[in-house]
Nucleic acid binder design. Sequence first.
RNA 1: GGAGGGAUGGGUGAGCGGCCGAAACCGCCGGUCUUGAAAACCGGUGAGCCGAUGAGGCUCCGGGGGUUCGAAUCCCCCUCCCUCCGCCA
Length: 423
Amino acid sequence: MLDIRRIREDPAGVEERLKRRDPSIELRPLLELDEERRKLQQKVDEIRRHQNEGSEKVAALAKEGRNAEKEVLLSELKALAEERKRLEARLSEIERELEKALLSLPNIPHDSVPMGTKEEKVVLKVVGEPPKFDFPPQNHLALAEKLGLLDMERAAKTTGARFPLYIGQGARLEMALIHWMFELHVREHGYIPVLPPILANPTSFFVSGQLPKFAEELYYCPEDELYLNPTAESLLANLHRDEILEEEKLPLRYVAYTPCFRREAGAYGEEQRGLIRVHQFNKVELFHYTTPEASYQALEELVAHAEKVLQLLGLHYRVTLLPTQDLAFQSAKTIDLEVWLPAQGRYYEVSSCSNCEDFQARRGNIRYRPAQGGKPRYVHTLNGSGLATSRLFAAILEQNQQKDGSVVLPRVLAELLDLEVLR
RNA sequence: GGAGGGAUGGGUGAGCGGCCGAAACCGCCGGUCUUGAAAACCGGUGAGCCGAUGAGGCUCCGGGGGUUCGAAUCCCCCUCCCUCCGCCA
């Protein structure tokens, strides 16, 4: 959510920056609503003032026994009350419209974000080399099925397509990855470990920004008005909803593990098979609450923490800066980590690290009290995967495969599993 | 699922339909005292909206409706929390 005052003070500037990400955005209707709202609010306040003064007089007149005067005043006040009721009805209608309009606006891109479409992302760095094979590399699904790590056929029986079933060493590997990443962030990077609920109410998703615009991406349980978690970002962004934090406690850094569920509506056609795009995957998520002054430094650190996972696994990857038109709704700036999948011959996103600045904080009313005192300010929130396992799992298989279809495990995992090679 | 109890400012907690944005205590900030600290004492300490970061006004006692000239206080609905019973991993 954007600050209406900021929009009011510099409508042209805000609109220009929003148009960088979505050229169809127009602020005029919103400004007109705001104008009307303020006029009405002032009228209502004025009436209330009269009412408040009048009510005090009623009490005084009653005490002095001046009943005739009291009756006259009462009928005047009654008229005022009715007038106010009428105006307030109109006001709340306008407030709802304004709220709706405001909720539908995405975050303002940071000035360091390049203008452009999805295809125009900037590669910030490339780490390592793509592994070289003297044989045609197989894709992860073929490898996994031959090695008995995944069983997509049987998963389809219970649930449907695109719900992976890990089995045998595959289940062990997945579990080890999750646990190892979680521990890495807790022990090496100082995050507070969290295992949150996997279902959450609509409010939580309004705060994080998934609602109202992306309802079709979420699984929903209507009986209970709960949504299935699509990313722990949503849950972690609500941890401190309606709170005023002490600045001394910032930054707060959380790491959560959750399964993630996404309907991927409209995504059929590409990446049909395998683990690239699935309805359920596991993700270790990183989340920061910080001050506005520290948030861009925090973004750098967040990216470094996520990268550490890829580095320790010895995977080849690259780091990209998303252009304005590819930013998530709530994000002001996003840096992606993309891992190399040899069989696909391209990079795939395994982490998306974003600074949402005060966008989510405003929606969730999450503030902090500055150390030197004074009014509470909105915190900045950041989120990043650290990392999503399904694509990581795929990358581990594909990058470490051998001619015979076996897979040499990265050292860290080999140690955890007490297993050098999947064969 | 059934039966009760509760929700008030950073925390605990009091509040008769008008004198309540709200007692008291704790915490926090400032001061007095002290070599310093503690204790004691004194003072100050919520958030939001409109307005020019002014004057001033308005709102907010879990959320939403209602009664009333006037609601933290009365009525209705909802949510959440707690206790007990049942069921259950």
